[in-house]
Design a binder for these strands. Structure first.
Length: 292
DNA sequence: TTAAATTCCTGTAAGC
DNA sequence: TGCTTACAGGAATTTA
């Protein structure tokens, strides 16, 4: 599942190859993947637009276009954004194809080159077997006003996100720690993998009430959350399901996960089998001995 | 107002 | 072997 580290990896990969390029046209093979505006308007509006920047907010990929327009991509569970040669075979479940202006010169400072040959058109393709993802287009104001882009909490890896901010958002909530971590309005970008990982690192039970957590424990959670996310970014994300980077490669963090996907297996710290419960509608794995 | 439950969707794996 | 069924989950929507 693409969470903050996976989305960050894709954005960092795409940025040098998309910045400054123009979208020649857009083709929707599955129009309802566009949630706003109407698909026909979307297709007409992106054509001819230049991409001035590529950024991330929570799990959203933001492509900044002319006229303050944002082309927004949310990958949902199985969404993939790939940069490929225009003549590459179209994979099953490809829902949108953006043809980019041809330019044989690779962008300066490109760490990884996409698989393309000089003089060929590039495609940015969106595929998503489970179709939980979505595409949006609009100004930030219009997307927020229409509630297509939700109000998001602070970025957990931003230096401005301090322990006290986490403490304050936890103490207001009468639900589990896990539920708050998954709430995008509380903290942006955390999903099921890194919620479980950071709670384990912080030695906190996921079903503990958020309100009532001590300042000291909140500080520990703040640190482990940042550590989990930054380490995953360093390892280019977790490919536990279908996640692939912009070139179709898997990440490396799945090899290093402490609890996610390891229910019944021994805890790396104490050896006790990891427990699994259901919290906030999600399977939740933790150690009953190490996490209190 | 807030929290919990439901819904969407398809590939995969378990069970018979 | 082949079919059926349960499960995975992000977030919008609905219900409590």
């Amino acid at each position: 599942m693409p969470e903050l580290p996976e989305v960050e990896t894709i954005v960092a990969d795409l940025r040098p190859h998309l910045t400054g390029r123009t979208i020649v046209r857009c083709e929707l093979l599955f129009p309802t993947i566009v949630r706003y505006p109407e698909p026909e308007v979307f297709v007409d509006s992106v054509a001819g637009m230049r991409i001035s920047a590529v950024t991330r907010r929570g799990k959203f990929i933001l492509m900044h276009l002319d006229n303050a327009l944002l082309l927004v991509v949310h990958l949902g569970m199985t969404g993939q954004l790939r940069l490929v040669d225009a003549d590459a075979p179209i994979e099953k479940h490809t829902h949108a194809i953006f043809t980019l202006e041809g330019d044989s010169a690779p962008p300066p400072g490109a760490a990884r080159r996409p698989p393309r040959r000089a003089g060929r058109c590039l495609h940015l393709r969106y595929r998503d077997p489970r179709r939980f993802g979505r595409l949006l287009l609009g100004t930030e104001e219009s997307l927020l006003a229409s509630k297509k882009l939700p109000r998001l909490g602070p970025e957990p890896i931003d230096p401005s996100f301090v322990p006290d901010e986490l403490y304050q958002s936890l103490r207001r909530r009468r639900t589990s720690l896990k539920a708050v971590l998954l709430d995008q309005g509380a903290i942006a970008g955390v999903g099921n993998i890194y919620a479980d990982e950071s709670l384990h690192r912080a030695r906190l039970r996921p079903d503990r009430m958020a309100a009532g957590l001590s300042r000291k424990s909140a500080q520990r959670l703040h640190e482990s959350l940042r550590d989990s996310l930054l380490m995953a970014i360093k390892n280019r994300g977790s490919s536990v399901d279908t996640y692939r980077d912009a070139w179709g490669n898997i990440g490396g963090q799945q090899e290093k996960l402490l609890v996610y996907g390891r229910a019944g297996e021994p805890c790396f710290t104490c050896g006790r089998p990891l427990a699994m419960i259901r919290l906030a509608g999600r399977s939740t794995v933790f150690c009953t001995k190490c996490q209190r």
